[in-house]
């Protein structure tokens, strides 16, 4: 290499040292790497350029959606109807059929010897509840009620009369319980909630328009009087014509009697506790004021 070449290299390197760092904002494509699209002008190259022949297609001034060139448009032709009135306030309960529930049990995705709640069903990964989409939990529907044979203690958020009858006919127990959105976030994905390292919230009471449902023993509401619930069990068995199995004599009586406290979100965990997944520890509040907040007597 000659001396002049060295000099050139040296000056180039010196220049490079003084120049700012190469960043996304000051780099340029290699010369010739980008090829601009050509608009052909020859016999076939300069034809229609994909815009079609004549009319608004060629001029590429497409009409707006629904416009009918002066007609009364179809989408404005009819009177208004309050189909979606108050949709932003209405609670949604994504359905889960009894057939699906039976399938989950048969495929060992749900344990029968433990109470089943929203958390257990969400953990199967086959049921999705999205609190941000105004979902408020499970609506257990009666599809496959005749095939349902499991004896379970289940807690759902909404259940019809047929569903209650189908569960109780097999000696099972069903409760309908309300979860406010904050508790629901914790209940649908406990792992994500525990990772946040915040105390387990206490479950709020249902809103005004749901309180009737959840205090009604006929709906097996979690706020209903247990005495009245057992009476309604008998009434329903007579209505649907099955013999009510005596759960008092059942070997799984303790499991069937297990219920959550109205303030409780998870079985075995109380509101106010913090679950540390990393150290596998549960932290319980000691302060009297905090205790009183989470467990008002």
């Amino acid at each position: 290499m000659s001396v002049t070449n060295f000099c050139k290299l040296d000056t180039a390197l010196n220049l490079l040292r003084k120049l700012p760092r190469v960043t996304l904002s000051n780099i340029k494509d290699n010369p010739g790497s980008k090829k601009k699209p050509k608009r052909g002008r020859a016999q076939h190259g300069g034809d229609k350029h994909g815009a079609g022949n004549k009319g608004s297609g060629q001029r590429q001034n497409y009409m707006r959606l629904g416009y009918e060139t002066g007609n009364n448009p179809f989408y404005l032709r009819f009177q208004m109807e309050p189909y979606y009135k108050g949709h932003h306030l209405r609670r949604q309960y994504p359905p889960l059929s009894l057939l699906q529930l039976q399938k989950l049990i048969d495929t060992s995705r749900l344990p029968v010897d433990k109470p089943i709640d929203l958390t257990a069903i969400c953990n199967t990964g086959l049921y999705v509840c999205k609190p941000d989409k105004h979902h408020f939990g499970i609506n257990l529907t009666d599809e496959g009620a005749d095939l349902f044979q499991a004896k379970i203690n289940i807690e759902v958020q909404w259940a019809s009369e047929q569903v209650i009858a189908a569960v109780e006919r097999n000696g099972g127990v069903i409760t309908t319980a309300y979860y406010d959105p904050q508790s629901l976030w914790a209940a649908v994905n406990p792992r994500r909630f525990f990772m946040k390292g915040v105390p387990i919230p206490k479950r709020m009471i249902p809103p005004q328009d749901a309180i009737d449902y959840y205090t009604n023993p006929a709906n097996r509401g979690y706020l209903a009087d247990p005495e009245k619930v057992s009476w309604e069990r008998l009434v329903l068995s007579q209505k649907y014509g099955y013999k009510l199995p005596e759960i008092e004599k059942d070997p799984q009586y303790r499991m069937l009697c297990e219920r959550k406290d109205p303030l409780q979100v998870f079985f075995g965990l109380e509101p106010g506790w913090v679950v540390n997944l990393h150290d596998r520890k549960i932290l319980k509040p000691c302060d009297e004021e905090v205790k009183a907040f989470y467990n008002p007597q």
């Binding site: 989408y75 404005l76 009819f78 009177q79 208004m80 109807e81 189909y83 979606y84």
Partner: peptide, 25 residues
């Protein structure tokens, strides 16, 4: 969304839309 559509039509889960009849009153 074109709000005029939501005020006049209702969408069923399977993808169909329902509407009222013009001049019903």
């Amino acid at each position: 969304t074109v709000k005029a559509v939501v005020k006049r039509f209702f969408r069923l889960h399977w993808g169909g839309w329902i509407r009222t009849v013009a001049g019903r009153h």
